[in-house]
């Protein structure tokens, strides 16, 4: 179960509203490599992950991504707060404003609503963990692109924190993937081919390989 804690993982205090910037940053809420997709990817993948340690890792990283979703939303909320319709329009926010006023809605920077088609849960451990490594790099790259465009120091500070977390998650997933590959390599009937069976679905093969 999840329990809410009434504080952000990293504080957000933005002095100057800037709707143009908000429109770019919202992509990390609802875009193809955003935090909503990240949390849904990991929290859905964990059920069929064959090693308990990896179920734990997906749970903990997926939970942290929910906190990041809240941080990104707080940035967008503060960047669009207190602006008049005229200011919002002048800052390129009119199309979003027409549909959502200044409500927080998960879309990409180009306005495409969030889609579960941006993520996978395949029920195959090696496939899922490989996707997770790619996902962390894509999110890191998106934060890099935001840092190329954003000059507000209050915003940059938060984005840098989020960017660093992608790198840490990439590292942890890399260790997770190595962990399952090493177990398969030492104990499998197919020591040089960890792809010979689906480690999640073909349980009898996996249990035999793990000596269970």
């Amino acid at each position: 179960m999840f329990q809410y804690e009434k504080t952000l993982e990293y504080p957000v205090k933005i002095a100057r509203p800037n709707a143009k910037l908000a429109k770019m940053i919202i992509t990390q809420l609802g875009g193809p490599d955003g935090e909503l997709g990240a949390s849904m990817r990991y929290l859905n993948q964990r059920y069929t992950m064959p090693l308990r340690e990896l179920q734990g890792l997906l749970t903990d990283i997926g939970t942290e991504e929910l906190s990041h979703m809240e941080i990104v939303s707080a940035v967008v909320y503060q960047l669009t707060k207190g602006l008049t319709p005229e200011q919002l329009e002048a800052q390129g926010f009119a199309d979003y404003f027409v549909d959502h006023t200044t409500g927080i809605y998960p879309v990409s920077a180009s306005g495409v609503p969030f889609s579960a088609e941006t993520l996978q849960s395949t029920g195959d451990a090696i496939t899922d963990l490989s996707e997770d490594l790619g996902a962390e790099q894509k999110a890191r790259l998106t934060y890099d692109n935001i840092l190329r465009l954003a000059d507000d120091p209050d915003v940059r500070d938060v984005i840098r924190f989020l960017r660093e977390r992608e790198i840490v998650h990439f590292q942890r997933f890399g260790e997770g993937l190595r962990m399952i590959q090493e177990k398969l390599a030492t104990k499998s009937h197919y020591p040089n081919n960890p792809y010979a069976f689906n480690t999640s679905f073909d349980k009898s093969c996996f249990c035999r390989a793990m000596g269970r």
Binding site: E9, E53, G56, L57, D60, R172, E175
Partner: peptide, 10 residues
């Protein structure tokens, strides 16, 4: 949280 992620696999 950060240590927890590490301790999950170490």
């Amino acid at each position: 949280r950060d240590l927890g992620l590490y301790l999950d696999t170490h």
